[in-house]
Each structure stands twice: as structure tokens, then as C-alpha cells.
Amino acid sequence: MEIRTERISDYDEVFQLNYLAFKNREDESRLIERIRLSKQFIPELSLVAEENNHIVGHALFSKAEVIDGEKNHDVIVLAPVAVLPSNQKKGIGSILIQEGLKRCTELGYDFVFLIGHPTYYPKFGFKPARKYGFELKQFNVSDEVFMVYELTQGNTNSLQGELRYPETFFV
């Protein structure tokens, strides 16, 4: 299996993968399309897992911001992550997430946020974000599913505020 940056030629296959992974819903696939067309899209943070010339997994990391009073701080949000149903439970999602976190670090970002399963994401080091002074008002979610990953250790003390997802998440 190869983890690589998504190519334009992968778009249709990634759409179908997300459609199947999210139980025949187009919401996540359409979100990906909107993010790709936005200024928050970072091409090298759209990752695919390829096996036998077929895409079996996809993870998208894109820009968002934390607002702290008058200050805006660029951060990354992870959404969505998908693996073909026939390939789930094989660690593909984990490999995509780990590669994405590595790339986010290399690009100089300090934080990655997500809304996700409270028992899955902590194994990568994601922690409840509100505990560190971050707020999320755009979505009504519990503390346990709103999480942050500190790319540079010790930075959770340097920033607090409201995470704001880009408008592309709400169209």
C-alpha cells in the first residue's frame, strides 16, 4: 500500500470511496469538493491510500482558524477520513492520519482539530479541546468529540479561543 498526495485524476474515485464509506451519503464527498475549491485547501494535505492501483482510503486536512479576541491563528481541521468498507479495520485510516499529522508539522502548523469518535482519535494523541481553552460554537457537540492535537508540544498554553470552520463546511 502506498500513501500519497491526491491527484486531480483521483477525484472521482475519492468521491465514490467517501460515498460508500459514509453509507451511501454524498455529504462528505460534496464537502471535499467544496474544500478543494476554497482557499483553505492545501493540496499536499489531501492524502490517499492506494493498493493495487485502487484508492482504498482518503484523509483531508484543511485550514481553519482560532479566533482569540482580535487575533486570528491558522490551524488545521481533519475532515473527513474514509476507508472503503471492504478495507476497514486494517489500519489504513491510522496510517493516513499519522502521515497527515507529520505533513502538518512539516508545514509549520501548531494544531489540528476535529470532531470525531471519542475512543478512536485519542490513540493518536488527540485530546478534548475545551479542556485547553478552545471553544466551538458553530456545531453543538459534546466536549468528548471536539478534539485537538498539539503538533508542537507545549503550545496549548500559547493559544486559546474559538475554532471557526470555514464557510465551505456549511454550504
Rank of each mutant, 00 (worst) to 15 (best):
Y120E: 13
F146R: 11
F111A: 12
S142D: 14
V145F: 03
G116H: 11
G108M: 04
F139S: 01
E106R: 13
Q160F: 03
Y120P: 11
F111D: 12
E106N: 14
F139I: 01
G116K: 09
G133A: 01
T119R: 14
L159P: 01
E144F: 04
V112Y: 06
L114G: 02
Q160S: 14
K102H: 09
L136Q: 09
K127Q: 15
T105I: 05
T156P: 00
E150N: 09
G133P: 05
L163G: 10
Y132D: 07
E144Q: 15
F124Q: 04
M147L: 15
D110C: 02
F124N: 05
F126H: 05
F124R: 06
L163D: 12
G116M: 02
V145D: 03
P128K: 14
Q160C: 03
Y149L: 07
D110F: 00
K127S: 12
Y109W: 04
Q138P: 09
K123S: 14
D143N: 15
P118M: 08
G108Y: 02
Q138R: 07
R103K: 15
G133M: 04
A129F: 06
K137N: 13
K127L: 15
S142V: 01
E150H: 01
L114S: 02
Y132N: 05
T152C: 04
F113M: 08
K127W: 01
H117R: 03
V141I: 12
K102A: 08
G116V: 10
L107Y: 13
L159F: 02
P128V: 06
L101V: 08
N140A: 12
K131T: 14
R103S: 03
T156E: 09
G108A: 02
S142Q: 14
P122E: 11
L107N: 09
Y109M: 04
L159E: 06
F126N: 06
V112I: 09
G154H: 04
L107R: 15
S158E: 13
C104W: 05
A129N: 08
L107K: 15
K137R: 14
M147A: 06
K102D: 11
R103W: 01
Y109F: 15
R103C: 01
V112D: 05
G154A: 06
N155M: 14
I115E: 08
G154Y: 00
K123C: 03
Q138H: 01
F126P: 07
S158Q: 15
Y132R: 07
Y121M: 08
G116E: 11
R130A: 04
Y149S: 00
E162A: 10
V141A: 08
M147Q: 15
F134G: 05
Y121W: 10
K123N: 13
S142M: 11
Y121D: 06
Y149Q: 02
R130S: 12
Q160A: 11
N157W: 02
E162L: 07
